[in-house]
Nucleic acid binder design. Structure first.
Length: 592
RNA sequence: GGAGCCGUGGUGUAGUCAGGUUAACACGCCGGCCUGUCAAGCCGGAGAUCGCGGGUUCAAAUCCCGUCGGUUCCGCCA
């Protein structure tokens, strides 16, 4: 065996997936895993896999008796070192489905570096495998191309984010993982302190306060690919620990942040996916988004904008409409796209879906010539029919859906848009649709606690024009905030922060925090703000969700190397787990 | 906390609604044959107390109750 030093295997000279026709005649050494073995009795074919791809290794006894005999004992997922000569495949044996399909390696020597047990599932593309099994053997799951490619993509995304931001003067600075619990927001993960018995660190929900301190410190532009922790229930797009592209800038307004982020995503999609996006990304105020899409994270790709038809039915004989209007409600709806001359069944399904979404009811109207087919038809005047046709722009056989009620109708219609898009639209007009949503309300009324809560966080700056009525009418106050939505998924959001102590105090008062409480909770930040805080603002994006969309996946688990199950466990390591009584003792903890 | 779907050899599924004799199929695995395959092929073989517990019944993978795990959604979460 031609080993060197203490090794009993030969180091590779090339990667499997890189071999091409031009390499014919070259002697190479490959290191990798056996993807498959095809034994023809005489000749044995091995597909050898490494991070770059797969190449066929031919073990022919006439070429090398030794290689052939070692290959006989080889099985799937064995780790090999193969020395051989690259040669062009015979024309009829070319495999167009492999990037290396025009060549093969004639093995001179095959060394088994390590055998492998038969894997619990097949390491192959597109196989459905039980989620628990996949996670328990994640290192095997990660050998499969989909997952491997997703992580390669993820690495390229973070590299390009770093590349872009550092080229724009941002400094990458780490912030603590062991930190202080902050009120508001999600439930904290908590870590007991040994040195301070009875006291606890909290894991950060985001680096929010630290990045603001970095602005006070004068770093001007900060970013971090930051791990964040929130102890809430999991979803397909939510893990207890997740990663944000987090950044903050000094001396900026919302425009600066948004236009720079436009540039960043254009750069990212160009470099990583080769997709050209158009700048600037469209923007909607929160109010506009709610009005036209019924949600603060619209997907405009489907069209079907919501319109207000209230004016048409002021004096309608149709009681559902008239009585809704009489109590201050509205009639809103949209033209369903992709559905023409529907069956009664399809219409019933729309109504059913609306009920599922919490609607009292749904009225459909189908254009038939100059007339409307609808459960409400016999109550509608000629004028109302004519107006409906005109204002909706309904084509022959097309469907208008209308719902009557208060603002909650928007939510129903939004859900119904999604339903119609899934049901009747096969392909979107564009693959990627970015939208900025701006001017969110600063406060939300919390009905349970009977108080205002921050929509974003307590340091978000109110819009300038709202300063005069901050206290008088908090629910009408908008903020200098912005969310970026991609294909109906909230990618991230941010705001310009308050840098004025007096204004901050006013906001705290509205949130029901007196000076003392504010000092207790955020004292260190407020104190820092007494030493010359610059105007500043920033934003944070969910990296997992971004990569999920870029990779075309349905769950962020598919773009995270070692994710957790919905119940927050890791079947691979067995976390979370009990700890020894001694450990509890050291921490002065006792199970309840 | 609530609702839906899923759980059957190593893997993926059929069988469950309408209970009935050896639980079927594909892949994988093991052995044999085979010198151009690449989802290799052909022949043979092993491998499942049907997630777990209880109940109904002459009889339960199948019906009922409970429980555990996975997953999706609501609540929660920016």
């Amino acid at each position: 065996m031609a080993a060197s030093g203490g090794r009993d295997w030969e180091k590779r000279t090339r990667y499997c997936g890189t071999l091409r026709k031009e390499d014919a005649g070259r002697e190479v050494v490959l290191n990798g895993w056996v993807q498959t073995r095809r034994d023809h009795g005489g000749v044995i074919f091995l597909d050898l896999r490494d991070i770059t791809g797969i190449v066929q290794v031919v073990c022919n006894p006439e070429f090398s008796r030794e290689a052939h005999s070692s290959a006989r004992s080889v099985r799937s997922e064995y780790v090999l070192s193969c020395r051989g000569v690259v040669r062009e495949r015979p024309a009829e044996a070319v495999n167009p489905r492999l990037s290396t399909g025009e060549v093969e390696v004639m093995a001179e020597r095959v060394t088994v570096i390590n055998p492998s047990r038969t894997p619990p599932f097949e390491i192959e593309e597109g196989r459905e495998v039980d989620e628990n099994l996949r996670l328990r053997y994640r290192y095997l799951d990660l050998r499969r191309p989909e997952l491997k490619e997703a992580l390669v993509l993820r690495s390229r995304v973070t590299r390009e984010v770093r590349e872009f931001l550092s080229s724009r003067g941002f400094l990458e600075i780490e912030t603590p993982i062991l930190t202080k619990s902050t009120p508001e927001g999600a439930r904290d993960f908590v870590v007991p302190s040994r040195l301070q018995p009875g006291k606890f660190y909290a894991l950060p929900q985001s680096p929010q306060l630290f990045k603001q301190l970095l602005m006070v410190a004068g770093f001007d532009r900060y970013y971090q690919i930051a791990r964040c922790f929130r102890d809430e229930d999991l979803r397909a797009d939510r893990q207890p620990e997740f990663t944000q592209i987090d950044l903050e800038m000094s001396f900026v307004d919302p425009e600066d942040v948004m236009s720079l982020m436009d540039e960043m995503f254009v750069h990212l999609f160009r470099e990583v996916l080769g997709v050209e996006l158009y700048r600037p990304f469209p923007r909607l105020t929160w109010r506009q988004a709610m009005e036209r899409y019924g949600t603060d994270r619209p997907d405009p790709r489907w069209g079907m904008e919501i319109r207000d038809f209230s004016g048409l039915y002021r004096d309608s004989e149709f009681r559902v409409f008239r009585s809704a209007l009489e109590v201050g409600g509205r009639i809103r709806g949209f033209r369903v796209q992709g559905l023409r001359s529907p069956s009664r069944r399809e219409l019933d399904e729309l109504v059913e879906e609306a009920h599922r979404l919490g609607a009292q009811g749904l009225v459909w109207m189908v254009r038939e010539g100059e007339d409307l087919r609808s459960p409400a038809a016999k109550f509608l005047s000629a004028q109302e029919v004519e107006g409906t046709l005109r204002e909706s722009g309904l084509g022959e056989g097309e469907v208008l859906v209308l719902a009557a009620g208060g603002e909650e109708v928007g939510e129903v219609l939004s859900g119904l848009r999604d339903y119609c898009a899934r049901r009747y639209f096969t392909r979107p007009r564009e693959q990627y649709s970015f939208v900025w949503i701006t001017d969110f309300p600063l406060f939300d009324w919390d009905e349970e606690e009977k108080r205002y809560k921050s929509n974003h966080h307590p340091f978000t700056s109110p819009s300038r024009e709202c300063l005069d009525f901050l206290e008088e009418n908090p629910s009408q106050v908008t903020s200098e905030s912005y969310d970026l939505v991609l294909n109906g998924v909230e990618l991230g959001g941010g705001s310009i922060r308050i840098h004025d102590a007096e204004l901050q105090a006013r906001v705290f008062r509205i949130l029901g925090l007196d000076e003392e409480q504010a000092r207790e909770k955020f004292g260190f930040l407020l104190e820092a703000f007494q030493y010359g805080p610059p105007p500043h603002g920033g934003i944070a994006f969910g990296l997992d969700r971004l990569v999920m969309i870029m990779a075309g996946k349905e769950s962020i688990r598919e773009v995270i190397a070692f994710p957790k199950t919905q119940s927050g466990t890791d079947p691979l390591t067995g976390a979370p787990d009990a700890i020894y009584p001694e450990q509890l003792g050291e921490l002065r903890l006792r199970p309840v």
